[in-house]
Amino acid sequence: MKKNTLVLTLLFFSLFSHSLSAMELKSFAKHTYQQLLSDYHDQAFILVLWSVDCPPCYDELTLLGKYLSHYPDRKMIFVATDSRQYENEIKKMLTTTLLEEQSIYIFSDVPEQHLRYAIDPHWYGELPRSYLFDACHNRKAVSGKMTWKMLDDFYVHTSLKQEKCQ
């Protein structure tokens, strides 16, 4: 029994570490924000900005992981505002919150404030910070944790309506 437990534990850690190393953190540079808008043209999505040094972010990621497990077709893009030295910590948090399969970015070497400014001059670094884009790419900024209802309201009542963009 003990032996089986040991084997299973080793197997788990082996798979976990393999999953960590396989996870790709794409670099979020100054132009990336505009690139994402172009890539997801006509598509509703949420851009989620977070950091390993932000206690509410962990709660946020946990909720979003559960939400996406229920609704895997709903698009979210995750951007860690940390530097590359925290890559392992970022990967661990994304794995434990079931988000490892999502589109994942990490802030590039450009100063953090400059990248924030490229997204939104009125975002001052508070985290978590999310931008909700409807299919017409009307943008709504949210500082702080989102709720399940907020996500439902956005995806069901806002983004899934097939309205013509003005």
Partner: peptide, 8 residues
Amino acid sequence: QVDACPHH
């Protein structure tokens, strides 16, 4: 009113 880390 925000449930976030302002870091500020």
